[in-house]
């Protein structure tokens, strides 16, 4: 069979739909003991749910970041499935190479044909800053089945918390310390990364956002991303006690508040159709009101320098995401008027 028409199938894993079905439909753990992540680390939970969703016939590639370092230090590893390190900006390229080589071996009959999941993960440094070109290129190669997961803890947590393109406005990091002269050192709004990948890669079949506070939603999105032929991308929102400066007890709560406040909407784009999921679906389709973002901000030490006007500004930007954007939290612009009819 010629290269251009050769397609390998993908794994069709059952959806859990609700959290009480996880023990039945996603039983085995493939990310187990042996890691050195912090108490309350939501990124580690993302890794666990991701591996659990993908199952045993999976290859996982990890670019430099805390889920690389904290999971592979001191003579131990939690990975039960094959795992390989790749460089910080290379998650997409490493996944492309791995998926392409598997496909070539199967096409030539040198390997038994079977769908093998290829998942590459990266942090927000690798997925939002340095690795954008690599992921973008990977999402262009529709003949290779792969999934890229960006676990976003909104900072370079591995090097003692610096801003990334995914950090929120005003956050206190070691490179953006608030001071007496300048209170707000980081003035950028978080990069809208999942939408960027969804909009910019028109032949990519699956892009989604996820949050470990909603595990059934996340497991199902991983399974859908693996099932869709071609490349897929998932962006997860991961509270980080060390980087965000809060008691680890609040990790789950902060993950919920980010979604409940509309700051991080849950959605998925499948084959050209975008749907909101979980609580975000009720915000968009069901008329459920969003919580103010203030409780989310006040729980975290990285925003403790905020004064009243900062809380109001933050809330106003979230409001804009929901009222001014063409799609809440996804498409930040609308179709303008016909220029020929402008005065």
């Amino acid at each position: 069979m010629t290269d251009s028409v050769y397609h390998i199938g993908t794994q069709d894993l059952p959806l859990t739909n609700r959290v009480n079905q996880i023990p039945e439909k996603a039983v085995e753990e493939y990310y187990t003991s042996g890691h050195r992540t912090c108490q309350g680390c939501e990124s580690a939970l993302i890794m666990r749910l991701m591996a659990k969703a993908a199952g045993p016939r999976t290859i996982i590639l990890g670019s430099t970041g805390c889920m690389y370092v904290a999971n592979t230090t001191y003579y131990s590893t939690p990975w039960v499935v094959p795992w390989m390190h790749t460089q910080l900006g290379s998650a997409g390229s490493a996944a492309t190479g791995t998926a392409a080589a598997l496909r070539a071996l199967m096409r030539k009959g040198k390997m038994k044909e079977e769908p093998i999941n290829v998942i590459a993960f990266c942090g927000d440094g690798g997925g939002v800053d340095m690795g954008v070109s690599s992921i973008s290129a990977a999402l262009m190669h529709t003949q290779y089945n792969l999934l890229i997961i960006c676990y976003d803890n909104e900072s370079y947590a591995n090097t003692d918390i610096q801003i990334s393109g995914s950090s929120p406005w005003g956050a206190n990091t070691t490179f953006t310390p608030p001071g007496k002269k300048i209170r707000i050192m980081y003035k950028n709004w978080k990069k809208n990364i999942a939408a960027l990948y969804a909009v910019g890669h028109t032949k990519c079949n699956y892009v989604a956002t996820g949050d470990a506070s909603y595990p059934a939603d996340l497991i199902d999105k991983v399974r859908k991303g693996l099932k869709e032929p071609g490349p897929a991308f998932i962006h997860t929102f991961d509270p980080c006690p060390k980087g965000w400066d809060y008691d680890p007890f609040y990790s789950h709560k902060l993950g919920e508040l980010a979604v409940e406040s509309g700051l991080f909407p849950l959605w998925e784009m499948t084959n050209g159709e975008l749907t909101y999921t979980g609580v975000s679906a009720r915000h968009v389709y069901g008329g459920r009101s969003r919580k103010p973002v203030r409780e989310y901000l006040e729980t975290q030490g990285r925003f403790h320098h905020f004064i009243e006007e900062d809380y109001q500004y933050f809330q106003s930007e979230v409001e804009k995401m929901w009222t001014d954007w063409a799609m809440p939290g996804v498409i930040p612009f609308k179709l303008g008027a016909d220029p020929s009819k402008k005065k």
């Binding site: 900006g89 800053d129 340095m130 003692d160 610096q162 070691t174 490179f175």
Partner: peptide, 30 residues
């Protein structure tokens, strides 16, 4: 700059002190 051990402290120092003298520090994407 871009954070990387063991050089990050240099930029941490500069990012604290630059605002007092009109310097510009930009954390780049790589």
């Amino acid at each position: 700059g871009y954070p990387i051990t063991p050089s990050t402290e240099i930029v941490e120092r500069i990012s604290r002190r630059f605002p007092t003298m009109g310097g510009t520090f930009i954390q780049m994407e790589d």
